[in-house]
Design a protein around this nucleic acid. Structure first.
Lengths: 343, 343
DNA sequence: TAAAAAAATGACAGCGCTGTCAATTACTAA
DNA sequence: TTAGTAATTGACAGCGCTGTCATTTTTTTA
């Protein structure tokens, strides 16, 4: 039923080693031979046995995606992107959800890497933002690619795929400014996350670029949650606290924005007429609020595939130069933002 | 670094075959020997190499989770549960997102099963509800476990884990009835999904059990989406359409309920004072609406682990009797339901 | 107590592939 | 043309484990 390398070799009239060479794209196989083998491979619909490869070879064909992120949509997108790269490159993907805050997380992952003979790892926040953790893994002789928030890699421990939240946040803020807003509130996510910091930087930059004076009372600390959005927006919009009262709010993600939206409704503030709100992430969330959220879209699928490709190329040839690719989330204008109308 | 079966054999002073017997829990190993080997295994922290096992043995130690479900939370929960069973049983999990409506879906999965030497598959709706598809796979000599909506398996093609949406829906509806509601609207999900059908049945049963006359105009067809909830609720609550106007709404899932919530706000209907709304699923969603949704909770993690265990036991011994386990989602009362107040 | 039966253990091949290194072939220059 | 070099190909061992079947040990029975 299932063709082996032996069948292919017979069919092509060469040795199995030559077939092996062809399917691994090694040099020093004559063009003619290569074609002959390729034809046999196609005819028999041969696909190499991953277990055998992993067992026989020095290299491994398994990579792992390790994550600890409460955002299910993000993870599903990542998985899909990584899987697509794996399929193209004949790699296998292991997924490993974990708790980044647990005591033995490093040991747990180290064990898993050794146990499963993992050739490479993909790390997303918050794991990718834990330097000690990353360091340990890199020292382990396993390739690592991190997905991080920012424009430049924080170190050269591993190749990174950077998501430039800063520029995106600046663009979004600029969008609010272009609509005539000057008093723009900022609802922060968890302060420990780089994404929060980067988005904050972008917000500040946009203000500066337009010579709008920064007002600290418009910045509310919080976390990446709906509740945080609710309470943050309440604080911003209650006359006694914030001064001046903002006419627009930048929320660090869509969940916070959804919370802000709700707070506004509770306070009888109509969106977007009296207050513009923007989110970040373009999660399915942002299309299920009313009004629909203006937000920033990250092509997570693409980012993940890119990261996986980077990882696999690292695994393939040792001395790959450290490459970094960068994405900038794109502004998506929907219904939660409007021109500022002086009352 | 990594201990092999040979190391263990040496350490325990037995042959590798005996070690193999112990780690596979085979019979005919003396208790004494078993303990000796076990000790060596523990000391060396030995874990069998999956690739080698897959390659050498007739059996395979890989199962796959194939899914096509837009609900990311659901999938993540499933994965986690399945993974936990795999870890316990020394199995490997392959994940395979796919498009159930695509032409070649069956062929795609069949290929994957053959290619990766998959021993078993876990199927969730909508894939688990496609009889032809399931039939093809079962005929393929791969074990299958389906997760389905209902109380009894629709056939004996494979063991099933049933989620009794009907009883749960009845309980939820009863909760509304207990609160004094009589005119209870029903916002359906996609009509092709068994879950919709089952939930509808539960709703009808509860009405019947309390001798409340069923009113067809209170049932609105729709789909599992926010927008469907919005338009459905609008239709129900506009005086001219529905007669009588419902005082409570049963929504087929939380997303629909969230939509209904929004529609209510648009129409200035206060929740829960003027209208009670219930959801289904207990997705993170349901805690991020205002007010928080009364809903039904499915222990997806547990369901998934159960399904995976069932699958693995199937794989282990051929002639396992077809087992079926059943879960009934539990009512979670939050803030979107209240006593019916006659005006 | 010895022979027969049953239980426990081990020797060995081989799963499908890759790495090593030797053998062959093609190509170059003299 | 022919030796000399480079490019191509193949033979073979072995990755870590399981299946088969032979061997040894223990238990039972006469």
């Amino acid at each position: 039923m299932k063709a082996t390398i032996n069948d292919v070799a017979k069919q092509a009239g060469v040795s199995i080693k030559t077939v092996s060479r062809v399917i691994n794209n090694e040099a020093s196989v004559r063009q003619l031979t290569r074609e002959k083998v390729q034809r046999a491979v196609d005819e028999l619909n041969y696909q190499p046995n991953l277990s055998a490869r992993n067992l026989a070879g020095a290299k491994s064909y398994s990579i792992a995606y390790i994550y600890d992120n409460p955002n299910a949509y993000y993870i599903i997108d990542m998985q899909k992107g990584i899987l697509s790269a794996c399929k193209q490159q004949g790699f296998e993907l292991l997924i490993h959800p974990c708790d980044s805050k647990s005591q033995g997380i490093t040991e747990e992952v180290v064990n898993m890497v050794k146990q499963a003979r993992i050739a490479g790892l993909i790390l997303t926040p918050p794991l990718s933002e834990m330097p000690e953790f990353v360091k340990t893994l890199v020292d382990l002789d396993v390739k690592v690619v991190r997905i991080l928030s920012g424009d430049v890699a924080p170190d050269d421990l591993s190749p990174c795929v950077m998501v430039n939240d800063r520029d995106a946040a600046q663009t979004i803020t600029q969008h609010l400014i272009d609509l005539g807003h000057k008093d723009i509130g900022f609802l922060a996510g968890d302060a420990v996350h780089m994404s929060t910091i980067e988005r904050y930087k972008g917000y500040r930059r946009a203000l500066k670029a337009s010579n709008i004076e920064f007002n600290k009372s418009l910045v509310i600390e919080g976390s990446y949650s709906f509740d945080s959005g609710v309470s943050g927006a309440k604080e911003l919009m209650s006359v006694q606290t914030a001064n001046p009262r903002p006419t627009a709010i930048f929320s660090c993600n869509d969940e916070i924005a959804a919370g802000a939206l709700f707070a506004a409704r509770l306070m009888n503030i109509s969106i977007p007429e009296q207050l513009s709100i923007v989110g970040f992430e373009n999660s399915p969330f942002s299309r299920q609020t009313w009004p629909k959220l203006t937000t920033a879209d990250q092509p997570n699928n693409q980012i993940a595939e890119d990261a996986a490709m980077l990882l696999i190329s690292q695994i393939r040839k040792q001395k790959n130069p450290i490459t970094i690719s960068q994405y900038v989330p794109k502004l998506i204008v929907r219904d939660s933002t409007a021109q500022y109308e002086k009352l």
